[in-house]
């Protein structure tokens, strides 16, 4: 194991986040705060509560998940796309590092950033609404699992993308709609029955449901289904990354 290399990639990527502090941390915090103002205070005041939880507090786990998904994907995608774009990937490919170590460095850094961001948003939210966390350990488990899984997805997208358009494509056209329709702002039993069934095919529903359960003990789907979904998605991403490095897809001629 090339520990120096893993640490080097990890620290370099975290330093990059520090260099771009505004877009890495400040802008997601600002946009989340805007959601609280609009949905929590303005609209939320008309909605009393969902399953006994004040609406402002109800949307907190979903909002954190929304940011966690989009930031994990875009952080990791950009981190590996950038060296491909500017040509510095040659150094990574010629270094005595295994694919596992490369993934550990990049995905580890992206997931760390996302988890820190999630905790910052959680702290921000506590200024707006009274929060309770029923299962703190499970909350961390969901936070980390989701951050790692979606950072892996972002890593795959960053390797697949051969232009900035594609780099934006999946986060914008797939992740954001899935997150919005995944029960961030509502409980799925508020939907008409037909849409409830459709929604069950959205993997993000399971993530948000599991995460919300760790706060309030409320679930849209069973907690086991949530864990299985995240784990299955994690396994799929790992398999894809394994295949990418095995074949050199979009990395080696």
């Amino acid at each position: 194991m090339n520990v120096h290399a893993v640490r080097t990639i990890y620290m370099y990527e975290l330093a990059r986040a520090w260099r771009t502090l505004f877009q890495s941390v400040v802008s997601p915090v600002i946009s989340t705060s805007l959601y609280f103002v609009v949905f929590g205070a303005a609209i939320g005041s008309r909605i009393t509560e969902v399953d006994g939880v004040a609406y402002g507090a109800f949307i907190v786990p979903g909002l954190i998940m929304l940011m966690l998904l989009t930031q994990s994907v875009s952080n990791a995608a950009f981190a590996i796309y950038f060296p491909k774009f500017n040509g510095t990937i040659y150094e990574l490919l010629s270094a005595p590092v295994s694919s596992f170590e490369i993934v550990l460095g990049y995905v580890g850094a992206a997931a760390t950033k996302s988890v820190i961001l999630g905790l910052i948003i959680l702290a921000t939210a506590s200024f707006f609404v009274p929060l309770q966390i029923a299962h703190p350990l499970w909350m961390v488990v969901f936070l980390v699992l989701t951050a790692v899984t979606f950072s892996l997805l972002g890593f795959i997208i960053g390797i697949w993308a051969d232009g900035f358009e594609k780099l934006q494509f999946i986060p914008l056209l797939i992740i954001t709609p899935l997150a919005f329709l995944g029960g961030t702002f509502y409980s799925i039993d508020m939907l008409p029955p037909a849409w409830q069934t459709v929604t069950l095919f959205n993997p993000v529903v399971y993530l948000i449901s599991g995460f919300r359960w760790s706060f309030y003990g409320l679930t849209d789907v069973s907690i086991l289904a949530s864990l299985v979904t995240v784990s299955a998605f994690l396994a799929a991403c790992l398999a894809a990354v394994w295949w990418i490095f095995r074949t050199g897809y979009r990395l080696k001629a």
């Binding site: 090339n2 120096h4 290399a5 640490r7 080097t8 990639i9 370099y12 330093a15 990059r16 260099r19 950038f82 060296p83 500017n86 040509g87 510095t88 040659y90 150094e91 990574l92 010629s94 270094a95 005595p96 590092v97």
Partner: peptide, 26 residues
């Protein structure tokens, strides 16, 4: 390896990028 094309991380600083290379090679 010093490749033919100039490939650099434009935003990185000289000292940091050289230090990075040493670590990457273990």
């Amino acid at each position: 390896l010093v490749p033919q094309e100039l490939a650099t991380d434009a935003f990185a600083k000289v000292h940091a990028t050289v230090t990075y290379s040493r670590g990457l090679f273990g």
